[in-house]
Simulated assay, not measured.
Amino acid sequence: MNKFFVTLISATAVLFAACNRNAQKFDASGTFEVEEVIVSAEQSGKILSFNVFEGQTIPKENVVGIIDAENLSLQKEQIQASIEALQEKTSNVLPQIKLLQEQLAVQQSQLNNLQHERTRIENLLKQDAATGKQLDDINAQIDVMQKQMDVTRQQINVQRTNTSTQNRSVLSEKKPLEKRVEQLSEQIGKARIINPVNGTVITKYAEAGEVTSAGKALYKIANLDTLTLRAYITGTQLPQIKLNQSVKVMIDSGAKAYREYPGTITWVSDKAEFTPKTIQTKEERANLVYAVKVRVKNDGYLKIGMYGEVLFVK
């Protein structure tokens, strides 16, 4: 009799627990999602290395692969050689200037001698030991020498101007070539596949050895530390919630239990929409609802696409 009584109590307890679970009333329900980032190739070419596998956690800024950029490197070296060759095309004005300056120095020395001779003749003329013609002749020679020196100075200036103009014309090609080198350097840098965010690889689309093109998807990654439950509430529930409100999030844990998580409402839609078709009954799908997003810290049990229930904290 006692044994039968204990069995009856146990059965009643199980039935009561099941009824309570089935009677659990949730304020909203939805599915978990995450912000996914699709990492694409920024350069065309053969994938030389690609160290990515699904389920792998990769830190931000890690280099996970290399795309062949040998052709771009050769182009860069060719342009750099062209820049170096430009320097050889420029003219060095110093040797020509040096010759003209030496010539000017000789002319200055000759002028000094002529001026000294003129002074001597002027003194002799005062003593009637020289003639006026001698003074005129020396003055004429001085005038000629000064004009020759003016011509030499002009030649120096012309030589400098012409050489500078010629060199500027040659070196004007340098700046566009340097910009092209910068462009190629940037493109070569894009041959490295750099992971943009901290996260876990969800899907891998390419393998080492394949030929890829710019913009082609290589892998999909997402930060699974925090997931977002996109749930739906009715218009009558809308006044009950606000941004940054704490809620309870429940997921199935076996056949007769729930696992509970703290959550925070991070977004509320400002437009009503029809209930998603994942809702089972036709009547429920016809209702207008508002989407909300609840941020939930993931302990590893939460998965993308998993269903979750929301209880508003009273």
Score class of each variant (00 low, 15 high):
Cys19Tyr: 15
Gly254Ala: 06
Glu77Asp: 14
Leu15Asn: 08
Leu94Ile: 02
Leu48Phe: 07
Gln24Gly: 01
Ser246Trp: 02
Val106Ser: 12
Pro262Thr: 10
Thr31Val: 12
Lys314Asp: 03
Gly305Thr: 11
Tyr205Gly: 01
Glu182Tyr: 03
Thr12Leu: 15
Ser164Lys: 12
Glu207Gln: 13
Thr90Asn: 05
Thr200Gln: 09
Val296Met: 11
Lys204Gln: 14
Leu229Gly: 05
Arg153Pro: 00
Tyr261Asn: 07
Val64Thr: 12
Val294Thr: 13
Gln154Pro: 00
Glu283Ser: 10
Val52Trp: 03
Phe50Thr: 08
Ala191Glu: 01
Glu309Ala: 14
Gln166His: 14
Gln183Pro: 01
Thr119Asp: 11
Ala217His: 08
Lys297Val: 15
Val289Asp: 00
Thr161Gly: 02
Glu61His: 07
Ala140Trp: 06
Val64Arg: 10
Thr234Val: 03
Pro276Met: 07
Ser29Val: 07
Asn195Met: 01
Ala11Val: 11
Gln103Trp: 04
Leu114Ile: 09
Gly215Arg: 11
Glu122Met: 08
Ala13Ser: 05
Val181Phe: 03
Val64Asn: 08
Val292Glu: 06
Ile38Leu: 09
Lys126Ile: 03
Lys3Met: 11
Ala140His: 08
Lys248Tyr: 10
Arg230Ala: 04
Gln107Lys: 13
Ser172Cys: 00
Leu15Arg: 05
Tyr307Ile: 02
Pro59Gly: 04
Glu284Met: 12
Asp225Thr: 13
Lys174Trp: 01
Lys271His: 06
Thr281Gly: 02
Asn112Ser: 13
Asn92Ser: 10
Asn71Trp: 09
Ile58Asn: 02
Leu224Ile: 14
Asn2His: 08
Gln96Thr: 02
Asn287Trp: 00
Thr7Lys: 10
Ser91Asp: 09
Lys282Ile: 08
Ala291Trp: 01
Arg230Pro: 00
Ala255Met: 04
Asp252Lys: 11
Leu15Ile: 14
Gln155Gly: 11
Pro276Phe: 08
Lys190Glu: 01
Ala257Val: 06
Thr278Tyr: 13
Gln245His: 06
Lys282Gln: 09
Arg160Met: 14
Asp299Asn: 12
Pro176Val: 13
Leu135Thr: 02
Ala129Lys: 11
Gly235Lys: 00
Ala85Gly: 04
